[in-house]
Write a protein that binds this DNA or RNA. Structure first.
Length: 430
RNA sequence: GCGAUCAUAGCUCAGCUGGUAGAGCACUGGACUGUGAAUCCAGGUGUCGCGGGUUCAAACCCCGCUGGUCGCCCCA
């Protein structure tokens, strides 16, 4: 509509009807990640463009094609962050943790920006919840983190999330592998799809493995898998990680085609995917991550290994919505009024109940009782109570549970406590 | 960045071969000072996504743009 301003393409409002799901997701992260020793860190949304170029890699799609970059007043190129790891790694270096206190476990949560074509589950502003464990190369850290992720999905009520796991080697074994791949792809140049014939075969042959065109697939089928060509150290890490996961009972499938779109990954790389039809369209990855043992050093810090993952909040919310979880809940109690005495006393009654911890809506309209109850029902209130002259005089009220229609008589003075004790019994899963 | 498809009330949609807009839901009040979740009644909003073209006449036909959705690429 002309004249009206609407939100920027790919950037959306989160409205109350959906906020409850987000709260479930964020609260679960705070509770659970803290249990594993992760503490929250918040870094700026704007960073120098150079941070992402250096950290994520110049040639990646994220940096080359999708960044919101602009010149600051002094000409410095700044960018809205397209992901969270680079910023945290920068903060880690900047505040001297690398030399002072290398073992750090951080989690974060906030908006990221990528200028892509929007579609279901993919937006230009999107929120990520992520974790980073810095300062240890021990595969048990990777395993513990993956177990934490599995617990997170269980905690928020998402089943069927599949962990796809791979190792992409390190600076010792990857060059040889890349060379082998490049050789193969140059040999079979004509068989590749158009896009990969041009750019990727020479620059990042790993991408060809991930290509879904029939042409590239046919070639990729003959390519060796990197997991079969890992150097001894990487191979040991890979084996230990798998052993630990099995010990923890964390299910996974090895997927040698996972290469990830960011250049900083070493060794462990993984994605969390949801099966088709689980509420996401073709954007079925709930999150992903891996190890980045060179990133901190590349950003000017001391050599510091790290491992982390990020989850897409919109995608998690979509998945929850598809299975009817995280719905907004209405008030615990709706207080209907009859007559001027009740209208005069209802704010006090509401206030007292709220002191007891109840979520309450009191009727402040002049609607008749039928319409008041209709609203209580539409608001999905758990209980309703009607206050009139008789209740005020007698100090007793009939507490009605809307779902069943059953009424119980309770003392008006205890109303808040009675409601809370009935509503807060079984609020949590896991 | 590429392809497909769609756009009418807050939401879901109807609107025939062109003749200057409708229904349901939701919302508010009432019938009904004392009981909702399918009782009834009443109340209102549209520059028909935007811009241009064809026509006596465009929600409808044509072109462009913007946006949504789906797919590709990529990713959260």
């Amino acid at each position: 509509m002309s004249g009206k301003i609407s939100s920027v393409r790919g950037m959306h409002d989160l409205l109350p009807r959906d906020a409850a799901r987000w709260h479930v997701l964020e609260e679960a992260a705070r509770v659970l990640f803290t249990r594993y020793g992760y503490e929250e860190a918040r870094t700026p949304i704007v960073e120098e463009t150079a941070l992402f170029a250096r950290g994520i890699g110049e040639g990646t799609d994220v940096v080359a094609k999708e960044m919101y970059a602009f010149a600051d007043r002094d000409g410095t190129s700044l960018a809205l962050r397209p992901e969270g790891t680079a910023g945290l790694a920068r903060a880690y270096v900047e505040h001297g943790f690398g030399v002072d206190d290398p073992q750090q476990r951080w989690f974060y949560l906030g908006p990221m920006f990528r200028h892509e074509r929007p579609q279901k589950g993919r937006y230009r502003q999107f929120f990520q919840i992520g974790v980073e464990a810095l300062g240890s190369a021990d595969p048990r850290v990777d395993a513990e983190q993956l177990e934490m992720a599995a617990r997170y999905f269980q905690y928020v009520g998402l089943s069927g999330v599949e962990l796809r796991l791979n190792s992409v080697g390190d600076e010792k074994c990857r060059p040889a592998y890349r060379e082998a791949l490049t050789r193969l792809f140059l040999d079979r140049f004509g068989d590749l799809c158009d896009q990969h014939r041009n750019e990727t075969a020479s620059k990042n042959p790993l991408r060809v493995l991930d290509c879904k065109t029939d042409r590239c697939r046919a070639v990729a089928k003959d390519a060796p898998a990197l997991i079969d060509r890992l150097c001894d150290e990487c191979n040991t890490h890979w084996g230990d990680l798998r052993k630990q996961l099995e010990g923890l009972g964390v299910a996974y499938t090895v997927d040698s085609r996972i290469v990830r779109g960011l250049d900083y990954y070493t060794r462990t790389a993984f994605e969390f995917v949801l099966p088709d039809g689980a509420g996401l369209g073709s954007q079925n990855a709930l999150g992903g991550g891996g190890r980045y043992d060179q990133l901190v050093r590349e950003l000017g810090g001391p050599p510091t290994p790290g491992v982390g993952f990020a989850l897409g909040v919109e995608r998690l919310a979509l998945a929850l919505e598809a299975i009817g979880k995280g719905e907004r809940h209405g008030p615990d109690l709706f207080v209907a009024t009859q007559g001027p005495e009740a209208e005069g006393a209802v704010l006090q009654i509401g206030s007292t109940c709220r002191t007891a911890g109840a979520r309450v809506e009191v009727n402040l309209r002049k609607a008749n009782l039928g319409n008041q109850l209709r609203r209580a029902d539409r608001q999905k209130a758990t209980f309703v109570v009607v206050i009139g002259a008789a209740e005020l005089a007698g100090g007793r009220v009939r507490l009605k549970r809307l779902a069943t229609g059953v009424e119980e008589e309770v003392a008006l003075a205890d109303l808040g406590r009675e409601v809370v004790s009935r509503c807060r019994a079984a609020d949590h899963n896991v």
